[in-house]
Write a protein that binds this DNA or RNA. Structure first.
Lengths: 351, 351
DNA sequence: CTCCGAACGGGAACCGGTTGCCGTCATGTT
DNA sequence: AACATGACGGCAACCGGTTCCCGTTCGGAG
């Protein structure tokens, strides 16, 4: 057994110092950077470091004031394609800037979200990024605002990514994309094709993202002087299964419609399968549109007309603005644009 | 300005102690747990903690020997559906066990992977989980083995999740699923339907996952005394675009085949679109199968026959076994089973 | 009314780093 | 040859916690 030198990773800066025959401060200086150290000493120290396979403890560094800050993001479900793209944006930008990322999924449970944020505060994360929409209730706003204050006073910052602001005065950075505008444009496109009964497969009624898209759906109708049948406004969640179930129920109940707009591409995918199962042709018998422009949208048959959202960019921006600001920066709000991607799933009515 | 008490987050345990009129040790004891503290003192301390919104610095705790260990996972691309599910498994299990997760994507770049692992070592992560296959070269094995030793000697552990072992003696935990077996079963199913010229849309030739699936493809043929035409074995990567491109090229080159087996569902999705674009019917003109059973597979048209892989379970297991073992546990190797999911995209030949 | 032990709380050392301050030594000037 | 000067490197304090060890104080038993 070569225990002596093989007890590598456990070694401290003092062990390295001892082996190099210098003091701990000198090792720190050699590793740290700019302080003048003679070439001979530097060489000895570096050799010791290499031989012992020494890596400074990042946590000790952090506590001593050196060390790169960590940043954290909290999301509902990493397997959702749009979440995943935001996460990718966050992670890439953080990596580019040399920061580490902590990640937590909450499964949509507010209690988990709270716990995690507390942990992030304990970790002294430079910023906490909340990714994706949520149920918007008064309690939620009050709670989140308290968290924002708490983080701000600890020198950190809360970032809401794809989630609306909390109202004026909260120390929060918000990077959103235009749910309502995107849905408006999409539904306008569908109406332009002559459709008049457009089924909307929405999300949970209290979910901010779902609400925005629903508002767009309604606004597009009103702008043309139309008043959509309330029966055509269905609620579920953002999963593929929800789309499948809602669509099947709609067909069973004999609802009449010539087009379907789904709150997400996932929902649209499930709906599409339900339509196929019912023997209906898309877009021959009924048109279909989604929202998010996930990569898969092109591979549905027919390829899905949808709304493109710059998810990765959203994540990147969140990181950049979060790190660019200090505790007492005013609240900030960026709204990214979206655009309709026309593919084959929406046809003119009666074609 | 109520600066006095609002300078919350920045407060240390000594500040809290001062406000409660006790020593830092006492605060630590109240918060920490089991040491006997009188009810009166405890109350005073807890009130001070609440008033100051104090949270102990997790990094300081960690360095002092208390504190929950962190664990880290490194993957190629969080937006890949199968990676995302593994990530979800890792994250959920870690959360259940009260651990925090660091996450890094490498974009398939080995240099990034190395950098990140070094960072994880600096963070003194309890375990580093490498998620997903990789290019398997001698250098890779040697390098990874060095990393494994390095982590082991630092009291941490390397876990390979969905990636093959490094050879005997490396201090590594491996949780794999049976790529070859799954592909074998899938291709056997296709051959049973009477297909004899089966196009294989593979991944990168040096990628471990791709290799396993390719071996299964070959083995299934040989088991029936068949010798697949080498022309039918194509290489790309695991993306949707790769599947699309490969399929289109195959059609342009006039390759003859009655079925297509794709290395992943993503590849299959791209291939399906290319087949549709060429005016071919699936499974009428050509059968198609994928691998991974991502949620979307059901919503392709026709629904995709594929191989189900317990990705989330894989991630959970990785965490559990990683944390269950100490530095000098022998290397360990778990192989999870897979099974074929028959949907509509493979039909009997000549039907 | 002592004496003893348990319950409680404080001081100080320690975890593994960084950094301000100061002493030493070798050099370059005059 | 004496002196100023700057390059190096060590000591010790500090970051924010935990925990060992020891001194008080208080209660009950003898």
């Amino acid at each position: 057994m070569t225990r002596k030198s093989e007890d590598a990773g456990r070694s401290t800066i003092r062990d390295v110092a001892a082996r190099a025959g210098v003091s701990a401060s000198t090792v720190s200086r050699v590793l740290g950077g700019v302080y003048p150290v003679s070439a001979a000493t530097r060489t000895r120290v570096l050799r010791a470091v290499r031989e012992m396979d020494y890596v400074a403890d990042a946590r000790a560094k952090a506590i001593a004031g050196a060390g790169t800050p960590t940043l954290a993001f909290v999301l509902e479900d990493i397997t959702g394609p749009s979440f995943a793209h935001m996460a990718q944006g966050v992670e890439r930008e953080a990596a580019r800037l040399g920061h580490l990322c902590l990640v937590c999924s909450t499964d949509g449970d507010v209690r988990h979200e709270l716990e995690f944020i507390e942990m992030m505060r304990a970790q002294r994360a430079a910023a906490v990024i909340l990714v994706g929409g949520t149920a918007d209730t008064p309690e939620y706003r009050e709670r989140t605002r308290r968290i924002a204050d708490s983080l701000a006073s600890a020198g950190s910052r809360l970032v809401l990514c794809g989630r609306p602001p909390l109202g004026p005065g909260a120390p929060v950075t918000v990077i959103e994309y235009d749910n309502e505008g995107g849905a408006y444009a999409l539904v306008a496109h569908v109406l332009t094709q002559g459709h008049r009964r457009v089924l909307f497969l929405g999300g949970r009624p209290d979910h901010t993202t779902a609400q925005g898209r629903e508002r767009g759906y309604l606004a597009a109708h009103r702008a043309r002087g139309l008043d959509p049948d309330p029966e055509l406004l269905l609620h579920g969640d953002f999963t593929r299964d929800s789309g499948h179930r809602l669509m099947r129920q709609a067909l069973e109940r004999g609802l009449e419609f010539t087009a379907v707009v789904a709150a997400t591409d996932m929902v649209a995918a499930g709906a599409l399968t339900a339509l196929h199962e019912a023997g209906l042709d898309v877009p021959g018998d009924v048109s279909l549109a989604g929202y998010d422009d996930i990569p898969f949208a092109r591979d549905l048959h027919p390829a899905l007309t949808t709304v493109h959202v710059p998810y990765e960019e959203l994540g990147r921006l969140a990181v950049r603005t979060a790190l660019g600001h200090t505790a007492d920066t005013a609240d900030e709000h960026l709204l990214l644009g979206t655009h309709v991607v026309v593919r084959g799933s929406v046809a003119a009515v009666g074609d």
